[in-house]
C-alpha cells in the first residue's frame, strides 16, 4: 500500500498502538498547513515555531491518553488546538513586539535556509509576502475565518461553533474576506 494512501485514522490508530513512524508521517502530511495557520495568526516565525511544537506535544499527550475521538478529522482537531494555544499566548504576553522590517514584515522568515537558488528565494518570498500582506489587511473577523477555513481546514460549521457565531455569519465573513482579497489583488495588479 502506498504510504500517502493510508488514512489519517489508520495512522493515528497505529501510532497509539506504538508505531512511532506513523506520527512522523502524519506530521509530514499536515505540517505546512498547520504551521501556515499558526504563522498567519501570530505573524511571527519564532513564536509560530514554539506554538507548532506546543501544539504537537499537546496532540501527542491527548493521543497517548486516548482523548482523540474525532473520526477522520485530524487536521481540524490540530488546528483547534493550535488556535487555542495562540490565543493563550496572546493573553499571556499581551502581544509580544515583533522584529520587523520597515514594511512590518517578519524578517526572520526570509532568512530560512533552503536548497533554493537566490533568485528562486526572492521570487517565492515576494509572492508569499504579497499574499500575506493582503491577508493581514483584512479585518480580524474576516481574517480569522479565512485562516481557519482555508489553511486550517475547519468546516464553516466548526468555525461558527468555535467563534460563537452562526454559520451564516461565518460564511458572510468568508465572502467578504474573499471579495476584499480580490479587490486588493486588482488594486495591486496581481493576477489571480
Amino acid at each position: 500500500m502506498q504510504l500517502n494512501k493510508i488514512s489519517d485514522q489508520k495512522l493515528l490508530k497505529q501510532y497509539v498502538q506504538g508505531n512511532e513512524a506513523c506520527l512522523e508521517m502524519l506530521i509530514n502530511r499536515h505540517k505546512d498547513r498547520i504551521f501556515t495557520t499558526i504563522y498567519l495568526i501570530v505573524k511571527d516565525s519564532y513564536i509560530a515555531e514554539d506554538l507548532f511544537q506546543e501544539t504537537f506535544i499537546k496532540v501527542i499527550k491527548n493521543l497517548k491518553k486516548k482523548k482523540y475521538n474525532e473520526e477522520g478529522k485530524f487536521l481540524p482537531w490540530v488546528t483547534r488546538i493550535a488556535r487555542n494555544l495562540a490565543i493563550d499566548h496572546f493573553r499571556k504576553k499581551q502581544r509580544m513586539p515583533m522584529v520587523t522590517d520597515s514594511h512590518g514584515d517578519d524578517v526572520f522568515r526570509k532568512m530560512k535556509i533552503s536548497t533554493e537558488t537566490r533568485e528562486q528565494t526572492i521570487i517565492r518570498t515576494e509572492r508569499e509576502d504579497e499574499v500575506r500582506r493582503m491577508i493581514n489587511q483584512l479585518p480580524d473577523e474576516q481574517r480569522q475565518v479565512l485562516i481557519l477555513r482555508h489553511y486550517g481546514e475547519l468546516s464553516f460549521k466548526e468555525i461558527a461553533d468555535l467563534t460563537d457565531v452562526s454559520i451564516n455569519t461565518a460564511l458572510g465573513r468568508m465572502r467578504y474576506a474573499l471579495n476584499n482579497l480580490r479587490k486588493l489583488m486588482e488594486h495591486s495588479h496581481i493576477k489571480a
Binding site: T36, A48, E49, E128, L146, Y151, R182, M185, A192
Partner: peptide, 14 residues
C-alpha cells in the same frame, strides 16, 4: 481564483 492565490502562501516549520 482567490483560493488559488491563497494556496501560493504556505510556510514550513524548521
Amino acid at each position: 481564483a482567490v483560493m488559488g492565490k491563497l494556496d501560493e502562501f504556505q510556510v514550513q516549520p524548521n
